[in-house]
């Protein structure tokens, strides 16, 4: 296999974090998902460790976004969806009958493909989740908003216009605002559904830097179509194809020495 750009990227990357001791943080056990009669996810099992960036890659329609949305139960919103199997986060089955979906979504934040700031001020966007979960004091809110904006590398750009509309920000800034909004309520996990796919290369690289920074505090699962991106930022990579998990392992291995033929074909650009 000739050395590709992606392999160079992987070679430059720091060695993947050593797997954390003890039980994996997110356990996906034999999960199947049906839209009506069609089976969109086929018996997927996957264990993700804490404070690790995992990339879900695969061609469109392979189920990677669907699986991502299982992790904060956003699929609940769609009619006719049925899920078999079990997903445990921190040891708790998130599809158990007594699970409070609100609590779950507080712990599992999400950033969407299309940046979707609320048509409110920058400040109110970040404060929205905090207020929902009961933060009232102005000084607490101010501090939390500032901290979230700093963590998402947006503070310096917006500190002088916190109270103007979030819709006036550029696409990349809006997406970082969505990240600030997600981390404001201090989740354990951040799900990112192609967070940079609508952004230019400079905005994309800022998001990528941010993800590497956020990895220190959060467990991140990112769906991406951009394989160089997956190679640059993830520690582990899962490759999906038509609803099946084909291969899962350290990112370096997936991109340089995959065990499956289909993975190799995909990461080298032969199909997909």
């Amino acid at each position: 296999m000739a050395e590709t750009l992606i392999q160079k990227i992987v070679a430059q990357q720091a060695p993947a974090a050593a797997p954390a001791a003890g039980a994996p943080f997110i356990r996906i056990e034999d999960v199947s998902l049906y839209y009506g009669a069609s089976k969109a996810l086929k018996n997927i099992s996957l264990n993700l460790d804490e404070k690790v960036v995992t990339a879900f890659i695969g061609p469109s329609g392979c189920g990677k976004s669907t699986l991502l949305r299982c992790l904060n139960r956003m699929n609940d919103l769609i009619d006719n969806v049925r899920i078999d199997g079990c997903i445990k986060i921190g040891g708790h089955d998130i599809y158990a009958g007594d699970v409070d979906v609100i609590e779950l979504r507080k712990r599992v934040g999400m950033v969407f493909q299309k940046s979707n700031p609320f048509p409110k001020s920058i400040y109110e966007n970040v404060a929205y989740g905090l207020r929902l979960h009961g933060m009232k004091s102005k000084s607490d809110l101010d501090a939390a908003v500032e901290q979230s904006l700093r963590s998402s590398a947006l503070w310096d750009e917006v500190k002088d216009r916190l109270h103007s509309s979030a819709l006036g920000l550029s696409g990349g800034q809006q997406q970082r605002l969505c990240i600030a909004r997600a981390i404001a309520i201090k989740p354990d996990i951040i799900l990112m559904d192609e967070p940079a796919s609508a952004l230019d290369p400079i905005a994309t690289s800022r998001i990528e830097e941010l993800i590497l920074e956020l990895k220190k505090d959060f467990t991140i699962v990112i769906v991406t179509h951009n394989m160089q991106q997956a190679a640059r930022i993830s520690d582990q990579t899962a490759f999906f194809y038509i609803g099946e998990l084909i291969e899962f392992g350290p990112t370096a291995k997936i991109f340089t020495n995959p065990s499956q033929k289909r993975t190799e074909d995909y990461v080298t650009g032969r199909f997909g």
Binding site: M74, R105, K106, F112, K114, N116, G129, H133, R181
Partner: peptide, 17 residues
């Protein structure tokens, strides 16, 4: 846009909120 509803729900808002 459905994205606004999703964003709110993903932050742990109830449907009513």
């Amino acid at each position: 846009p459905p994205g606004l509803r999703e964003a709110s729900l993903a932050l742990g808002a109830t449907k009513l909120e």
